[in-house]
Measured scan of single mutants.
Amino acid sequence: MALNTPQITPTKKITVRAIGEELPRGDYQRCPQCDMLFSLPEINSHQSAYCPRCQAKIRDGRDWSLTRLAAMAFTMLLLMPFAWGEPLLHIWLLGIRIDANVMQGIWQMTKQGDAITGSMVFFCVIGAPLILVTSIAYLWFGNRLGMNLRPVLLMLERLKEWVMLDIYLVGIGVASIKVQDYAHIQAGVGLFSFVALVILTTVTLSHLNVEELWERFYPQRPATRRDEKLRVCLGCHFTGYPDQRGRCPRCHIPLRLRRRHSLQKCWAALLASIVLLLPANLLPISIIYLNGGRQEDTILSGIMSLASSNIAVAGIVFIASILVPFTKVIVMFTLLLSIHFKCQQGLRTRILLLRMVTWIGRWSMLDLFVISLTMSLINRDQILAFTMGPAAFYFGAAVILTILAVEWLDSRLLWDAHESGNARFDD
């Protein structure tokens, strides 16, 4: 018995066209964080690309023209004298008006014999932002004059995390709450300039795509075929072959399989920071003279006294001054041990922890910024005066060393310790 099946006739004509040209192939790229070699397709503007294995951002879609970056830099340069030299806060102490600005706080630190601690604050609040705007201006002028731009481009990517104007702005709020127990506070004209400078700096850093600047100024022929001998440069993120001198053909720094002496430098910085954190938390970090009496505060006791007036601000200072430094030390110690013992479990967790400490590390400088600003506000000789204690130097040095330890660690070593050939990683 035959089955009668109805015929289905399409209502619209289906047209099949042959592909007349070869589909576009992607360029081969190595991930600078996990060293995976993959094919990167062509990316349009405002599109980002991520590593298929570790999800690290390979290409950032946010990109401004150099002219727009230069305009932002010149605007920031105009704001800087007002943000640093004009009063941020006014207080009335014992019937006398006192003005506080950024430069005055750094000068008070240096004047009291601790120039190293003052230079830490100076670099993060004044030096690094000033280098940022002058570097962008150098790129703008240098591109037109045919100057060598490689050193500036190499420095810009590392400079971003040292620009800490946003953290200093939080420190202004913390210092205001600490001082309000002794005097009446009012915002100064410099505060508005400083807030504007923070906003412009944040926007500029978020749109400063150094890798795209490398592509514009020093374009290189990408690798179009897969080759395990391809290496990625950690300076400019170019994937290719080393030249005859073993250097990256684009930025001219040595092109090595792994960062040289990464573990040794990381261990040295980490152990030194552990040693410095002990006096930083045991010795007094601030000293207040009130009517001839002397009151010393460690980091913890200062947080407890701050909690009596504002528990939320005390929580912020606790996280930045105690929780973050010790968390960074514990995480980095764990990561280094996992590399030495070739741990194969929990790779995803370790990668996330490394990215976390990379982002939060700079916030530990908050305590030094609060001390710097408070020193310029309260300084009335023996009637009422505020000065920093010996722990300030140890704390600042420990924070900087932990930042350097994270920067010096080559994250690809975590993958080397893991089993080879993993296309995915999980716990």
Results as ranks from 00 to 15, higher is better:
99 D>W: 12
96 I>N: 02
117 T>K: 04
358 T>Q: 11
131 I>K: 01
327 T>N: 13
302 G>R: 00
198 V>P: 07
68 R>I: 15
149 L>N: 05
264 Q>E: 01
427 D>W: 11
8 I>C: 10
253 I>Q: 03
266 C>Y: 02
411 S>W: 08
192 F>I: 12
125 V>F: 09
244 Q>M: 05
338 S>F: 14
3 L>F: 11
239 T>S: 09
164 M>D: 08
218 Y>F: 03
313 V>W: 07
254 P>C: 04
346 G>S: 09
202 T>Q: 14
339 I>M: 07
55 Q>H: 11
181 D>F: 01
40 L>G: 12
152 V>W: 01
82 F>Q: 06
5 T>F: 11
138 Y>L: 03
14 I>G: 12
244 Q>E: 13
2 A>K: 09
78 L>F: 04
282 L>Q: 08
347 L>Q: 15
282 L>D: 04
287 I>V: 09
247 R>N: 07
334 T>L: 15
95 G>E: 01
351 I>T: 08
259 R>E: 09
257 L>Q: 05
195 V>Y: 04
169 L>Q: 04
192 F>G: 06
73 A>C: 11
153 L>N: 04
34 C>I: 00
257 L>A: 06
40 L>R: 14
251 C>Q: 00
229 K>F: 07
17 R>A: 13
137 A>K: 09
96 I>G: 03
101 N>F: 02
205 L>I: 15
80 M>T: 13
222 P>E: 08
196 A>L: 13
17 R>W: 10
13 K>W: 10
16 V>S: 10
63 D>G: 15
255 L>W: 06
397 A>K: 03
390 P>I: 06
165 L>M: 13
137 A>H: 13
159 L>E: 02
190 G>Q: 02
230 L>M: 10
79 L>W: 14
234 L>E: 09
393 F>N: 04
97 R>P: 05
43 I>K: 14
245 R>N: 04
164 M>P: 01
361 G>T: 11
378 I>S: 00
426 D>P: 13
377 L>Q: 01
188 G>T: 11
265 K>D: 08
33 Q>R: 15
389 G>H: 00
311 I>T: 12
119 S>F: 02
6 P>L: 09
193 S>M: 02
57 K>G: 10
206 S>P: 13
22 E>T: 11
97 R>T: 14
390 P>E: 09
351 I>E: 10
377 L>I: 03
93 L>G: 01
168 Y>K: 14
138 Y>P: 02
113 G>L: 13
212 E>L: 15
269 A>H: 02
415 W>N: 09
210 V>P: 14
84 W>H: 09
43 I>Y: 14
3 L>G: 14
402 T>Y: 05
313 V>Y: 15
106 I>W: 01
392 A>I: 04
293 G>W: 06
105 G>H: 01
409 L>S: 08
264 Q>D: 03
138 Y>N: 01
408 W>Y: 04
99 D>T: 10
196 A>Y: 15
48 S>C: 13
307 A>D: 03
219 P>L: 07
75 T>H: 07
391 A>Q: 02
151 P>A: 06
248 C>Q: 00
187 A>C: 07
350 R>M: 09
372 S>Y: 02
45 S>Q: 13
375 M>I: 09
204 T>C: 09
43 I>T: 13
147 M>D: 01
148 N>L: 02
63 D>N: 15
363 W>G: 09
403 I>V: 12
164 M>A: 03
363 W>K: 04
359 W>T: 14
21 E>N: 11
391 A>S: 12
188 G>Y: 06
197 L>F: 07
370 V>A: 04
381 D>L: 02
347 L>C: 12
352 L>G: 12
361 G>A: 08
208 L>Y: 08
146 G>N: 04
68 R>Q: 06
211 E>P: 13
252 H>Q: 03
26 G>K: 13
333 F>H: 08
10 P>Q: 09
216 R>A: 10
379 N>Q: 11
306 L>G: 00
174 V>K: 00
